[in-house]
Write a protein that binds this DNA or RNA. Structure first.
Length: 755
DNA sequence: CTTGCAATGACTGAT
DNA sequence: TCATTGCAAG
């Protein structure tokens, strides 16, 4: 029982009230994962069979870590029987067991985003629609959100609201694409990510006995990150918990950042009406961050209208202020932050793994990679293009997929002419025409020429037959040889390995090594399979589409600087955090400026970013950056202004070009950022730090004598009138803009001109 | 059918 | 900037 002693009263309540519907509202850093872990351990200690517990997490990595922690408390033999994983992986497994009940093969393929996009592209072409109008990404988005709201293609077509929406946006035929897409996926024995949830709902609807089975199996259901569940997921949880009502959801509305994936913040609010007889526990004490960080984050999130009231606090030290760094370019931003990491490591004895650089978009990683590389600082990029999405890996997995499920259209198209065997585009076109004509898959047309005649000349026909024979020969071994033996055999026989071995360019060598790494992974899978399970290649393929890099973190990646998007950083924490690229149109994203709700989501994202930090948080922005190869100027993010300035420390380090070398060195060594305190000592930062430069900088404010009532001009908001000033000298102003309403501006950043 | 070059559009976010 | 696509020539 000693593990319980480490909990505070609120946490203990949340752990020990195991029966009935429970909602835990957990502020950032409040020990949410611990509560969830201990609650499961506690359940097991109370005699609940782990077989009866279902725990849904946001990432497989989180599931794995939780399982390990529970193992260390309760013991691994018991913990093994827990069902724990992401919605997608758990329900994918359930679907495999019952695929026949919804007309799918047990070996169904999981289409990843690329696969489904490529299929949508071909459909748009086949329907002779304009690819500019029906952009695959757009259509994909429409279909995805339909599925997440459990709207089938037929329902989509007959839903007048949706159809009208499409019509008004000039895309009246989306429903046709959806219909064709649904049909083709079915024909290919394939499900996309959204299908894994959607089809499970279908399964539970159409097979009451299956639902009944799982309702009674999962007597206790726990859901992490509940604020990021969509309707489809919400309904699955509701159905599963309908009998015993032992459902525990954990979340924080302030950290809801996945509405683009259909996540519905309302799910948290619905909980109270769905389960009138529920308990709510609020975890408000933050154990992660310094007071400064907690308070700064609170001051930001307070600007949001939609939120559940809570008071996140901490008894940790006050800590240092949040640094704000302005740089000239994105490259300089990279250099400066790499330098800071280098210095902090020396001065404070920090490890590489203590640092994280968080950005809004994946494309921003480059400047940091370069700078870190120059200083020999090892780093690891999370997310972005994952291992399994690399071309060479997708190619070889294409063979495995087609071997396991020959109907898989996307795999077929990917490998039918790779390595080159003289089956080009026009051949595939002919096959597609025939397949559509007969209503069968590409494979069937290719494999049964007598049954489905095509206009292929005998030469091509021969090549195609060879290909078919080869895949068939692989399929024979599917349940006779273990995964590794077959995988290796395919890699060699298909000629893929040879193809890459021949390429001696650095990239070619890397690709070859990646394939070897994949094979090594399959070997490990083959030998590590637990008892009662088989180790065939099809077993390995089960959820390979769902794996991400985070799932396969290697030991050598342990002590590295972390680079990732803020989305990917959810649930993580680091002593030193750099939130970079804080510029208007980048963060907040340009796409989010249209509505309040979207802007509020960006703000929650910013909140998540700040609250990852334990000791130290630095915000940075560049006044110009490269985008699509050309330099664009940018303005600091409104989010910086939204932090209560008493928590900020603004420093403008040396920038190349404006000074003599002497000053450079001096400045670099003794870069002492001046504290920015509205009421504090009247130290002027601008003159110290900003060498006179060509452009009028943010130092305008200090030269100006601002008074309430003055008419001023702002770059973004246009003309306005000062309503109020704070601090001596004034540091913050409330200005009324006819175009934008009242705005609170940090004079350090707002470029105000007196009119 | 393949190759090579020019043109083009993509940068929110991720299971 | 980078990857994908379209087109002409071999």
């Amino acid at each position: 029982m000693n593990y319980l002693e480490t909990l505070n009263p609120a946490q203990l309540d949340a752990v020990k009230n195991i029966d009935g519907p429970t909602m835990v509202i957990a502020g950032a850093g409040s020990g949410k994962t611990r509560v969830l872990t201990f609650r499961i351990a506690y359940l097991m200690e109370k005699g609940i069979d782990p077989f009866n517990i279902l725990s849904l997490t946001f990432t497989n990595k989180a599931a794995k870590e939780m399982k390990e922690r529970i193992s260390s408390i309760i013991g691994s033999t018991e913990a093994k029987n827990l069902t724990m994983g992401t919605f997608h992986s758990v329900f994918a497994r359930i679907l495999r067991h019952h695929a026949d009940k919804i007309g799918y093969p047990q070996n169904f393929t999981i289409y990843d985003t690329q696969d489904s996009r490529s299929l949508l592209k071909t459909i748009v072409k086949e329907l002779k629609l304009d690819e500019k109008v029906y952009k695959p990404s757009m259509v994909q988005g429409r279909i995805s959100s339909a599925k997440n709201n459990l709207i089938s293609a037929v329902a989509y077509e007959s839903n007048s609201d949706i159809v009208n929406e499409d019509r008004q946006s000039g895309r009246p035929r989306v429903f046709e694409i959806y219909k064709a897409y649904e049909k083709r996926c079915k024909l290919a024995g394939a499900m996309d990510f959204d299908d894994l949830l959607y089809k499970t709902n279908v399964l539970f609807r159409d097979s009451p006995e299956t639902l009944h089975f799982y309702q009674h199996r999962f007597k206790y259901v726990l859901v992490d990150e509940y604020q990021d569940t969509n309707y489809s997921q919400y309904l699955l949880v509701k159905k599963l918990a309908a009998v015993f009502q032992n459902v525990c959801v954990v979340g924080d509305d302030a950290q809801s950042i996945y509405s683009f994936r259909g996540a519905n913040i309302q799910n948290i609010l619905n909980f109270k009406t769905d389960y009138p007889d529920h308990n709510v526990f609020k975890l408000e004490q933050n154990y992660r961050s310094s007071q400064t960080i907690v308070n700064a984050a609170n001051s930001v999130i307070a600007k949001n209208k939609d939120q559940i009231q809570k008071n996140v606090w901490t008894s940790n030290d006050v800590g240092s202020k949040i640094k704000v760094l302005r740089t000239l370019t994105d490259n300089e931003e990279g250099k400066l932050i790499a330098n800071q990491i280098f210095e902090t490591k020396q001065n404070e004895g920090a490890e590489n793994s203590d640092f994280a650089i968080l950005y809004r978009t994946n494309a921003q990683s480059r400047s940091f990679e370069e700078a870190l590389r120059k200083l020999n600082l090892p780093y690891k990029i999370y997310g972005g293009l994952s291992f399994y999405q690399r071309k060479e890996i997708k190619d070889i997995i294409g063979y495995y997929r087609l071997t396991a499920n020959p109907q898989d259209e996307e795999a077929f198209k990917r490998i039918v002419n790779y390595p080159k065997r003289g089956i080009g585009n026009s051949t595939v076109e002919k096959l597609v025409v025939a397949a559509n004509h007969y209503g069968v898959s590409l494979w069937e047309v290719a494999a049964e020429p007598q049954k489905y005649p095509t206009e292929l000349n005998s030469g091509t026909r021969n090549k195609l037959n060879q290909f078919v024979t080869q895949i068939k020969s692989f399929a024979v071994d599917l349940e006779r040889k273990d995964a590794y033996t077959l995988a290796q055999h395919i890699a060699v026989t298909s000629g893929i390995l040879k193809d890459h071995y021949a390429d001696k360019s650095p990239e070619g060598v890397a690709r070859y090594e990646n394939i070897q790494a994949l094979l090594a992974g399959i070997k490990e899978f083959t030998t590590n399979v637990s008892d009662g399970e088989t180790n065939f290649l099809s077993d390995f393929m089960v959820d390979v589409a769902l794996l991400t890099d985070a799932d396969s973190e290697k030991d050598e990646d342990k002590n590295k600087v972390s680079l990732m998007t803020i989305h990917a950083s959810k649930g993580l924490e680091f002593p030193y955090v750099f939130v970079v690229g804080l510029e208007e149109n980048l963060f907040p994203s340009q796409m989010a400026l249209n509505s309040r709700t979207e802007l509020e989501e960006e703000r929650r994202l910013f909140y998540v970013a700040i609250t990852r930090a334990e000791k130290n948080c630095t915000l940075s922005f560049a006044t110009s950056r490269y985008r699509w190869g050309n330099l664009i100027t940018s303005e600091s993010s409104r989010f910086i202004e939204e932090i209560n300035p008493e928590f900020l420390e603004v420093s403008t380090p040396y920038r190349s070009g404006g000074r003599s070398l002497n000053q450079t060195n001096l400045e670099n060594k003794t870069r002492t950022p001046t504290t920015y305190a509205p009421n504090g000592p009247k130290r002027r930062l601008t003159k110290l730090q900003d060498a006179p430069k060509k452009s009028k900088d943010g130092d305008t404010a200090d030269k100006l004598d601002l008074k309430v009532g003055y008419n001023v001009m702002h770059e973004r908001f246009g003309k306005g009138k000062i309503v109020a000033l704070e601090g001596t000298p004034p540091s913050k102003a409330t200005v009324f803009f006819p175009k934008a309403g009242n705005k609170q501006l940090l004079l350090k950043f707002a470029k105000l001109e007196v009119l």
